[in-house]
Design a protein around this nucleic acid. Structure first.
Lengths: 138, 138
DNA sequence: CAGCATCCCGGGGGATACTG
DNA sequence: CAGTATCCCCCGGGATGCTG
């Protein structure tokens, strides 16, 4: 299709970037693959908290968006290798920066307050900041 | 807390970054604010496709995560200004890169195929690519 | 080994209407 | 002007189980 409508100039290409890179795992997978071609199980090992299903799905989307290339070796024990395409590799710098930023953020701010990790059940005792502290001014 | 458990080192800080920056609008808003302090309506104008609700919510989350500062001027016509914090400004480079990348991606690949924009209901007639084109190899 | 299939859930995200 | 308040829908994401 590629924008049949003619309008919707997207205003801000960041939205497009987020469409491609959105989701919790895309960039993490990308970063993994920056280390070189890897097969499914290697990726899985590198991202212990992702489920197979999610890994598969995200990989497929990344493939559809032209960021990774999937190569199937039809052997007796099936082997599938994933590699970054040129497009995928073009995210090298960005992934590095985001990773560094994430580290730094964790250091200086701790875990983000807004998005509760859901599966990190909150140690019971942290009373939730209640962001009500409005910065009033005149 | 800062990781009381000792384990769960997050493996990849990118996940953290995505928790903070995830969501369709966060970075777009950030980028808007990189232009300087703006009030609600200005932001809204700069991001025509976002709804008030979303703008409010995302701004609140960004505030909670320490990326933007919200200043309320209690005047007769209420005025609220949003500005980036230091932390928010630290994303300058990343936002720029992502924006540039988004532009480039749109140019070279067109709209991302994976994430259907949901509210662009697919013109009915496009039979879904069926990504079956597996890159086989021996 | 590398995956689909299935079931399930929460919340992200949108539209619209109302308010201080 | 700058929000809340509702309602609603979809899909990201997880768990588990089965197969070529």
């Amino acid at each position: 299709m590629r924008n049949t409508i003619g309008e919707t100039p997207d205003y801000c290409a960041i939205e497009t970037a987020m469409e491609v890179l959105g989701g919790r795992w895309k960039l993490a997978i990308l970063k993994q693959l920056l280390g070189g071609t890897q097969r499914f199980s290697e990726l899985k090992r590198g991202l212990p908290r992702i489920t197979q299903r999610m890994l598969t799905r995200q990989l497929r989307e990344l493939e559809a968006d032209g960021l990774v290339e999937r190569t199937v070796y039809r052997e007796v024990p099936p082997r599938v290798e994933y590699a970054l395409t040129e497009t995928g590799r073009s995210l090298d710098a960005i992934a590095g920066l985001l990773d560094a930023w994430g580290h730094w953020y964790l250091d200086t701010h701790g875990r983000p307050t807004s998005a509760a990790p859901a599966h990190a059940p909150a140690p019971a005792g942290v009373p939730a900041p209640a962001h009500a502290a409005v910065t009033a001014a005149e």
